[in-house]
Design a protein around this nucleic acid. Structure first.
Lengths: 365, 365
DNA sequence: TGCTGGCACTCGATTCTACCGAGTGCCAGC
DNA sequence: GCTGGCACTCGGTAGAATCGAGTGCCAGCA
């Protein structure tokens, strides 16, 4: 891709001016506008000549003959890669973030959901949160609870505070004591190990117990493989404001409703080491008019999940990147240091935050 | 409301024709169209005269002088109350429902989410599922699991298979054995009783244990009061197709994103004993161009939660009502008879359905 | 050589006009 | 009391005229 990385400085400046302007106004940008832009000190005629070149090289298009230019995906890409720094948040936004992370508390799911709301509010794009996978979190506790005569619930608590459950159909009526024993056995076999790593089974004299243990282990394996296709989408209504064609809105929203698609989109982008995917760069046609900004989430030093933003290709990349990165960093801090295993990591601030309602009750008891 | 209930048969027929036509076409309906409708055997001039009357009485409006009439909320209301039966689903839809409930399985959350998708697909409106409240479900198991030195997780399993959790900050490092003991104590104090009904506390000799038990009981009370403002929204992208003004779409979607608003809207409608709320009838201005259809969910004989549909006021009420009712009935059956306490209720079919993946594993073990 | 001002041209958007026709209200007559 | 007839309204569409932002090209200047 030689032409992607090399553009003489003037062309680059012109491209930058066009992209910035277009992001702001959503109107095709003409040569005069560009010529008047600070930093451009040539005439509109020269700008026009350069625009022709930029168009030939695929950075710009003209919606129709007598209109200004708008950036192509390639144009945005160059803008993002070469012309802009991630940017920083405005003071008001910084304040919002700070305040948010001071106040937020509760279970992880709630927190992720609210974080998604925050991110969307900061940027006015739709936001996406890919929860940290529980793959590597060690099992902390396993329990079998009888619900009905031939129905039990397997409840697995992971060290990161996540609780997974699965109903299990029993072959026979099983007493609560046997269930408890089976739960204990399974816990012994799997504790302190990640969900996926199931021990080979050991047999006892008790056929019924063995069977229940087997069922539970199966369910645990099932838990390990399934589940991880969940994603939290927030502020999707803001996409309606970003597009003017109602049909575009509909198709984008309907794509966003398919969790699986969103998850794989994000994973794809992350895997390719990108933080931005523009228009057709990701292969999802219904989202061809969208761009995705992703920031991986790193909890206690290892990557887990991600936060992202979905907006029109003419999104404000610097701001979106800044917001995603700041929020992901703060969220990562927040999720780590306390719920994760390493002992002694419960620092004062985090624990303090997490108290809230609890605190009052605690004082009383 | 004398004029709401009394309309001479001809007026009613004309109103019905207009509403039906408008629901189908979204175009103002003229007198000629009505006169040509089967069942109307008067001239267009007569229809016009009646239309004037209907407009005076508030059932119809004219977008502008030389246009046809469109129904007002009051017009729809009369249509729903007096002119139409709930209707039945078409064979294709029946088949979809049957197939869906044959296949669906898994945890309740998944099932509700998929059901919401089904309902939306059936009607092409947005669908809403208000999960059965756990208020009355008795506690089946309580457990305290240590996550970090001064952090524990309270895990409560209810008889309906729901699992609730809460992190608890501990005043001190507490050993796993004490946590387990505290969990057991709390379980003894609360088991078989609904979440809200907390026992008065009994003291032991052990101050630390008492404190942990106190914290756990507080957390349980907290669980009982909070939480119940959750709602599952599905197919909201279909609303984009229902409205043509992108601003309407945005505002409706953004209202739908506020779980709390949706919950109280549904509760309001249910409390007033309605199954349909049209336009401004419910007091939520941003949804003034929407109608809501609700069907309460009855699980094992008692009302719990609801399913609903949200569409434009010109929605197909008979079909929407039919879909909501059928789905709510089937879902109620499915949620009951097995997960709920009464022993022996695990009938063959339900248990069979629930097996799926499990079954294979079971055979193998 | 490269930039610039000038110029003819394009073409979407806007405005205006005319006009059609669906729809109305009214009324005289059956 | 219903109906056909009629004059009238007025939104929507089509076509023409106009505007103007924007373009590509080119000759001339530094």
């Amino acid at each position: 891709m030689p032409d992607t990385q090399d553009l003489d400085p003037r062309k680059a400046a012109i491209l930058e001016a066009i992209v910035s302007e277009y992001i702001g106004t959503a109107q095709p940008v003409g040569s005069q506008h560009v010529a008047r832009t600070a930093g451009i000190s040539v005439s509109s005629a020269t700008v026009r000549a350069e625009m022709v070149a930029l168009e030939r090289e695929g950075f710009l298009v003209q919606p129709h003959t007598s209109a200004g230019r708008i950036p192509t995906d390639k144009g945005y890409r160059f803008f993002v890669d070469q012309l802009t720094e991630p940017g920083i948040l405005g003071p008001a936004q910084r304040h919002k973030v700070a305040k948010f992370f001071e106040q937020v508390h509760g279970e992880m799911e709630d927190m992720l959901e609210r974080t998604s709301g925050l991110l969307s509010e900061l940027t006015s794009y739709a936001s996406v949160v890919l929860p940290p996978s529980h793959e590597s979190a060690p099992v902390r506790s396993v329990q079998l609870v009888g619900l009905a005569p031939r129905l039990a619930l397997l409840v697995v608590v992971l060290a990161d505070g996540a609780v997974e459950k699965r109903t299990i159909d029993l072959p026979d009526e099983i007493g609560d004591d046997v269930l408890a024993a089976a739960g204990a056995r399974v816990q012994a076999m799997t504790a302190a190990r990640p969900l996926g790593a199931t021990d080979e089974r050991t047999m006892t004299k008790d056929r019924v117990l063995d069977e229940v243990v087997g069922l539970a282990l199966d369910a645990m394996k099932d838990l390990a493989t399934a589940e991880d296709d969940r994603v939290i989408v927030g502020g999707s209504s803001r996409l309606a404001a970003a597009f003017d064609a109602v049909e575009t809105v509909r198709s984008v929203l309907s794509t966003l409703e398919q969790q699986l698609v969103v998850v794989s989109l994000l994973r794809d982008v992350l895997e390719r080491g990108l933080s931005v995917a523009i228009g057709t760069e990701h292969g999802y046609e219904p989202l061809a008019s969208c761009a995705v900004v992703v920031a991986p989430l790193s909890v206690d030093g290892h990557e887990a999940g991600a936060v992202g933003l979905l907006g029109p290709t003419r999104m404000n990349y610097p701001q979106a990147l800044a917001a995603a990165r700041v929020v992901s960093a703060r969220l990562g801090e927040r999720l780590g240091g306390g719920t994760e295993a390493p002992p002694g990591r419960v620092d004062g601030r985090t624990a303090e935050d997490r108290v809230t309602k609890r605190r009052g009750a605690h004082g009383r008891s």
